[in-house]
Write a protein that binds this DNA or RNA. Structure first.
Lengths: 191, 191
DNA sequence: GCCTCCGAAACGAACGATCGTTAGTGTCCG
DNA sequence: CGGACACTAACGATCGTTCGTTTCGGAGGC
């Protein structure tokens, strides 16, 4: 669809990721597009719209990535794929992911709660994987799945701060998963 | 020392944590203290000063917490204590930790690089623990310590988003560590 | 005990700059 | 001709900061 409008959104996401929502002015955004700031209002109603759009993109991307995971696989395998999926989204849409994780709280009114709910739903999908896994025996039966899912979600949510754009995230996710699966214990570690 | 100045810093940290640096105006800060905004400049030279001070507090707290870990313990035990130490700082000084992790990039000039270096040094101290642990046999000799330390630092750096103030962080850290040490693998997990 | 002086703190008003947003007009293309 | 796009100009609000003045409690000299 409209090329100009999507260019605007893309540039807004870039700047929001770099300088934060409140740290980015409409004027700077206009300058980055080579246009007077008033002109932007032919495309948007408010600055908030741009943030909202960025958040929507992020939400959609993360959920769709999870959707692509086949149901019939064992839970441990689905956790590995979920980690892959998440890191891939972060790496392929680094700026969208950054805004999604970091700037959502600057949404105003109902929109803030909408995305808080979206984030909670996303995390709940991870939580379900661990619960299922423990119940099915794919994960240790004495597993503290609350802590385990928190560990994975932390790695996922923090990834935008260090993931280089275009990295091989599948291999990285597998390395994370390998540690998570078998631990780091050495032969001389006291228990 | 000067009560008023430290009240100012404390309130600034609180607001920066809640609304972000750019999302907090000097006027709001003054109103929270029951004072005209111009009056704040009897105590500070600029808004940046307040951010800088918050960052300094955070940096000091995190490093001091690591300093208290005895050298003579096995590396795996020191990792456990480091995780405890970090989570304790986050929980006891949640707002300082939030600003330290989230707002450091709004420091201007040399100060930004100063804290980037501080953060890198802090992470390097964690990295060293994993390296030592692997070399000493306290951790698996085939350990991917790059990934392992990233996992732990992710959990540490993300903690401010979900840690309730005043939680029992020692127990929580131990639960994280237990998973990290022995993994989550179940009896029916394919390898 | 009174007076004076000082330093810390806050006051109120204003500064120029920038903020997000609106409005009316113009241009170019299909 | 219409619609997408951009222009210029301006709006009121708010931004961080400066300034000269005022208030006030306590220390020190008389």
């Amino acid at each position: 669809m409209s090329t100009r409008r999507s260019e605007l959104t893309r540039e807004a996401v870039r700047l929001f990721a770099e300088r934060g929502y409140h740290g980015t002015s409409i004027g700077e955004l206009a300058k980055a597009l080579g246009v007077q700031k008033g002109s932007l209002y032919a495309h948007i109603d408010s600055k908030q719209d741009l943030l909202y759009e960025a958040m929507s993109e992020g939400s959609r991307a993360f959920h769709e990535a999870l959707d692509a995971i086949p149901d019939h696989l064992p839970a441990s395998e689905r956790i590995r794929l979920a980690l892959r999926a998440h890191l891939r989204v972060v790496s392929e849409q680094l700026e969208v992911a950054t805004v999604f994780v970091r700037e959502w709280r600057y949404l105003e009114g109902d929109r803030a709660e909408e995305f808080l709910a979206e984030r909670r739903r996303y995390e709940e999908r991870f939580r379900a994987l661990f619960r299922e896994g423990r119940e099915a025996g794919a994960l240790r039966t004495d597993l503290d799945d609350q802590a385990a899912v928190l560990l994975v979600l932390s790695a996922a949510n923090w990834a935008y701060t260090w993931l280089p754009e275009g990295a091989d995230t599948d291999e990285l996710a597998d390395r994370f998963f390998a540690i998570l699966l078998d631990g780091i214990r050495g032969y001389s570690t006291p228990s």
